[in-house]
């Protein structure tokens, strides 16, 4: 029992530093600069949202922090140690959930736990069940992925990302393919879950209101090459309502900035 408690104990979020990071991709004919000299400090437990049009390199930046790609120049540090490869301290939520159809819902959550050394089977199951409950899908443990709605899939994906107890959570447009109703419910749930499992979050979106609703800070990026242009601090108490006037005010300001840097 003690081991499971250890496993579920909240761990302090990490400090994330991105220093002078550039990345370009070689296509058939030319070289595309996806990111140029990006600097960003994300404070312990801070939620930073990156907004910008497609091609501004926001998803590339996430892949770099995840360790799925390596930067051409610069460095990414998590609590002072450089990122060289993927690690369970930085978990990712993808746009289309990326759940494995050959596993059921709880099987997907267990995937990352199975790779954690020293965790016996019963402990893994208990941890997975805790996160299933956290996202409100306890009764869907053995559902096949194709039986779940889009919103449910993203909940399972969130549980899967939280289960290995990372210090950084990377979210790559996780709600982009959901309908507005589902999305708005998830904003509330997500804020509630963040209260319980505090993480340093880098959240990529092209939805400005979403960014204002979720982020402590919203960073505007521009494409060709991908660069960070402006940073907005959203100092509003949580939980926030996406339809509130304050959010609309911030969104207007940030949308204007986006147009300016287009």
């Amino acid at each position: 029992m003690t081991r499971v408690t250890d496993e579920l104990a909240p761990i302090p979020p990490a400090k994330l530093s991105i220093r002078g990071v550039s990345k370009s991709f070689r296509s058939a004919r030319r070289e595309v600069a996806a990111l140029e000299a990006v600097d960003l400090e994300v404070d312990v437990g801070e939620i930073v949202c990156l907004v910008g049009p497609s091609g501004c390199g926001k998803s590339t930046l996430l892949a770099l922090v995840a360790g799925l790609e390596t930067p051409d120049t610069g460095q990414i540090l998590v609590d002072g140690s450089p990122v060289t490869k993927p690690g369970r301290d930085r978990m990712v939520m993808f746009q289309d959930a990326a759940l494995f159809p050959w596993r059921d819902a709880i099987g997907n959550i267990l995937f990352g736990l199975e790779l954690k050394p020293g965790l016996p089977r019963w402990a893994r199951l208990e941890v997975a069940q805790y996160y299933l409950q956290l996202v409100g899908l306890s009764s869907f443990a053995h559902a096949a992925i194709h039986e779940l709605s889009g919103g449910m899939r993203q909940r399972i994906a969130l549980a899967r990302a939280l289960a290995p107890n990372p210090t950084v959570l990377l979210m790559d447009e996780p709600f982009a393919s959901l309908d507005a109703m589902t999305r708005e419910r998830l904003y509330g749930d997500l804020q509630e879950i963040w209260q319980k499992r505090r993480k340093t979050v880098l959240f990529v979106t092209h939805n400005v209101r979403e960014a204002c609703c979720l982020g402590d800070r919203v960073i505007v990026m521009s494409p060709h090459p991908g660069k960070m242009r402006e940073s907005f601090a959203v100092r509003l108490p949580r939980p926030r309502d996406i339809n509130s006037a304050e959010i609309a005010g911030f969104a207007r300001e940030i949308t204007a900035a986006l147009r300016l840097h287009e």
């Binding site: 799925l68 369970r88 930085r90 978990m91 990712v92 993808f94 990326a98 995937f111 990352g112 290995p164």
Partner: peptide, 9 residues
């Protein structure tokens, strides 16, 4: 799928 799996170690 492989990207997601790699992030989980």
């Amino acid at each position: 799928y492989t990207r997601a799996a790699r992030t989980m170690g």
